[in-house]
Simulated scan of single mutants.
Amino acid sequence: MAALKDLIDHADGAVGFTGAGISTESGVPDFRSPDSPWMKNKPIPFDLFLKSEEARREAWRRKFTMDDLYRGARPSRGHLALASLVEAGRMPGIITQNIDGLHQASGVPTDQVIELHGNGTYATCLSCGIRYGLDWVRSRFEDAGDAPVCEACGGIVKSATISFGQAMPEAAMRKALKLTLSCDVFLVVGSSLVVYPAASLPLMAKENGARLVIINREPTPLDDAADLVIHAEIGQVLSEFAPH
């Protein structure tokens, strides 16, 4: 892994871009593995969630089923390695497609984690924006059997994730684009690079002059464009950057 270390050591600003693969070592299932539990508990599309009380109940049932599968998940070696790079000032931020909050749990400040697909560790009211803890949501869901509504305005309460069909968070996208165009190494970790618009960022970085590095267990559509591709276990590859 000498080539990777050399690229990181000589970078003025390396940006991390993470997908589900960085969290599998933590016990969080990814979407595309055979028999993935996500296939049995697919997120409800946003338009259906808005239209149907029954769909909202089912969305919360699936949400809590998945949460129970990886309750207690802790940051992986990959998370800890990137957190170490952020702490050392060598990585100004991490762009993530993940919703598990494990980058923050690894010690990365919240303002240095850009969550393109939201965060599944809390909920918000879609009308007034009030934030709710999942324990509050779950107690009301299990006690009444209904999807909870906002105590302040009566609006629909939803997990703070970006569902299929829901608009991408504009502020996060702007911040991600700014970070992408300011780096000289763009480090993709554990992303299949098939979900857009997030998957457009690595090529933007490359076209802007950054070195593109992809670490993923399986090949990706952008491997041919990368300066360095490593098909291996993420924790093993990044362990040399983790605190010892």
Rank of each mutant, 00 (worst) to 15 (best):
M39W: 05
A160H: 12
A205P: 01
V28P: 01
G118E: 01
T65F: 10
S52H: 03
A205S: 01
A172H: 02
E218P: 00
L212N: 04
R61E: 00
S200F: 14
L203E: 04
L212F: 03
A83C: 07
L102V: 10
R71G: 08
E218M: 14
T121I: 01
D9N: 09
G118I: 01
E142P: 00
N41H: 12
S76V: 02
N41G: 00
L116C: 05
L203N: 04
E115T: 07
A144M: 13
G89I: 04
A11C: 06
A205D: 00
F49H: 01
A160S: 09
R62A: 09
M66D: 08
S200E: 14
L193R: 10
L80A: 08
Q166D: 12
I214C: 09
L80R: 14
D68W: 13
G107T: 05
R174C: 02
S200C: 11
G190C: 09
L179P: 12
I215P: 08
C125Y: 09
T180G: 06
P43K: 00
Q104F: 02
A83N: 07
A123V: 05
S192T: 06
R138G: 02
V15Q: 07
N208C: 02
V188A: 08
L48F: 08
V108L: 00
L201M: 12
D9H: 09
A144T: 15
D35A: 15
G19H: 10
E218W: 13
D227A: 14
P221E: 13
P34I: 11
D12N: 12
I234H: 09
V113G: 04
V213T: 08
V137C: 11
K178R: 13
P219Y: 04
C125V: 05
G89V: 00
N41Y: 09
Y196K: 13
V195M: 08
V15P: 08
L102Y: 05
